[in-house]
Design a protein around this nucleic acid. Structure first.
Lengths: 186, 186
DNA sequence: ACCTGAACACCGTTCAAGT
DNA sequence: ACCTGAACACCGTTCAAGT
């Protein structure tokens, strides 16, 4: 106690995410963030380049929440687990999650998740030169649904209805993957 | 010339959209918008309740850009036209378009587009009690792709590749609709 | 009815100064 | 190396006042 207040980047990002989750993205202010850390706003600039860099860092946190699903699972269940994790993360961080649509998945963590999808697709029989496109379409459909859900586009629908929609979406995507794995479908 | 500067809501919204298109969403400021209209910032508050209301109005403009496709077309081409229009609108207004994910499609214009999709689905043989869900999934997949594209998630991909992806996505959705029209698919 | 002038609390960011 | 104090230009929004 009484020790010098030292902060590091990880702390800054984690606290920013906490504020966003509690009070929304607009409440994440250099001033409010500094206050929660017990520091002046200017101290933050030693750990983040500016506010955009701060938000970039916060978005990256979302991708580290879940470990990749166990590789013993058959591929359809592995993809389902991935989708469920993504949806859980979105519901936990509704104001930050939509920012994922603005960022190419180039971080180490994002790459790892994408690699997991590639492996699943190869197991499903998708030819290697098509895994990129199939991954993009499948991930985009899931992401689009989940972002719509937490961003408010489905605000007039019941949770029950959205759960059913999500199940059908996954079935549709699984059928698509199957068709890509069984030679060219018509 | 020399006439009193009178502005109305439509002018305010149109000018705000123009600024967003030219310089990005952050450049849409009550001050910058007022300046372009030749008026003080406070004059805007007679026409929009606040900045959130301003942006809501701007987003609505996006839905009025295209007339519904001609009903003489067969349903697959009508849906393709709808998707192509959406993508054109997104490319034209890349900084505003992503906000569509935050709004339930409840405006008159949004309803009209959705109705056009319902009609197409019914023609495809989708049972009436399933058109809601199918419309939601199809629209969400298209919207997710198009928003990803203009928001930057695909920034490392070529236009050629994205065009190919979009075609495959539409084929996949058309196959899904067919399967829903032909009784329950496995 | 519509617009203006002046003012408010707040925002991100800088710079030079402290330890 | 890390944090602070003071300052800057800018932001959305209010209120009372003008025509």
């Amino acid at each position: 106690m009484g020790r010098p207040k030292r902060i590091d980047r990880a702390q800054v990002l984690a606290e920013a995410l906490a504020i966003a989750d509690e009070k929304g993205l607009d409440a994440v202010t250099m001033a409010s963030l500094a206050e929660r850390l017990g520091v002046t706003p200017m101290a933050l600039y030693r750990h983040v380049a500016n506010k955009a860099d701060l938000l970039d860092g916060v978005v990256e946190l979302l991708l580290t929440e879940f470990p990749p699903p166990p590789s013993e699972l058959p591929w359809p269940e592995r993809l389902s687990a991935l989708a469920a994790n993504l949806r859980t993360s979105a519901r936990r961080h509704p104001s930050v999650f939509p920012l994922l649509l603005q960022r190419p998945a180039t971080t180490v963590e994002a790459r790892r998740t994408r690699e997991a999808v590639y492996v699943a697709l190869l197991e499903a029989g998708v030819p290697e030169d098509r895994t990129g496109q199939v991954e993009r379409l499948v991930s985009t459909a899931i992401l689009g649904f989940v972002v719509s859900e937490v961003a408010g586009r489905f605000r007039h629908h019941t949770r029950r209805q959205l759960d059913a929609d999500f199940d059908v979406l996954q079935a549709l995507l699984a059928a698509f993957i199957q068709s890509q794995g069984a030679g060219q479908a018509p």
